[in-house]
Design a protein around this nucleic acid. Structure first.
Lengths: 133, 133
DNA sequence: TTCGTTGCAAATGTTTTGCACCTGA
DNA sequence: TCAGGTGCAAAACATTTGCAACGAA
């Protein structure tokens, strides 16, 4: 097991995620971090995001838009994805721990976690009429 | 709006998905279809999988393993993903339509659907001891 | 000094796309 | 006939990785 060593880059990446509630992608993190460390590389950003997610300090989110999103908040919670603007928003709703128990009655194995994404249209997009195409 | 035209390839892709319960990836579909149409191209497979998903004849599944999976069964249902072998299995459990209603009380916008993936370890993998690395 | 970390660039893996030809209606 | 579909190859993207130099302990 490798011992972690301090790195300014990794700390900044985590700090940045903690300030955000909009679940940025690796690319967004990268461009933000460039403002602080002009030479930081995409590889470093990906490596640290992976590492932080592995040790449970951040959370990786899959919404089906083809890009991974990251969340500085690790307490289990749900997300809503707007199908128009693809924003990923937090949902302040009780986490349903009981569904895992329920699911394990129907599964021949061990269930350890669950993720739920809600899909819909956010208020901003409801206000904006559809564009013809 | 484009009018659909019959194609043997598209029909075979859908037929193949209907026979499977293991949620194959595009690549798996491609290799299977090659046995019937030796010249079918990956592009055709991707185009048809996208199209079929768009018109709601099949379902696209995101599990976070970096590859899209496809499901011939379009009735809403849940999946369990084995975190060891990455298999995607159907879960025969009541679909919780009421959680969308519940979620919409906490969301400023309109919620139209939800997906839930359960994660755990399947029976086969529970039987297999961990490999040292 | 040691070994994890970084920047850079190349590689990988998945999915999309441009284009000329083919085919169903 | 003609718009949609196909095969092929190239492109587009997101993500990972090899490597030499760097830096924390």
């Amino acid at each position: 097991m490798a011992t972690l060593k301090y790195s300014r880059q990794r700390e900044s990446i985590k700090d940045f995620l903690m300030t955000r509630t909009d679940h940025p992608t690796a690319d967004v993190v990268y461009h933000q971090l460039r403002k602080i460390y002009p030479n930081i590389s995409l590889g470093t950003v990906y490596r640290n995001l992976s590492l932080l997610a592995d040790i449970g300090e951040i959370q990786k989110i899959y919404t089906g838009d083809g890009v991974d999103h990251f969340d500085g908040q690790v307490v289990p919670h749900y997300h809503v994805v707007c199908t128009k603007c693809h924003r990923v928003m937090d949902l302040d709703m009780d986490y349903m721990t009981e569904v895992e128990e329920k699911a394990s009655h129907h599964f021949n194995g061990k269930i350890t976690s669950h993720i739920t994404n809600f899909y819909g249209v956010c208020n901003d997009c409801l206000d904006t009429p559809d564009v013809a195409h």
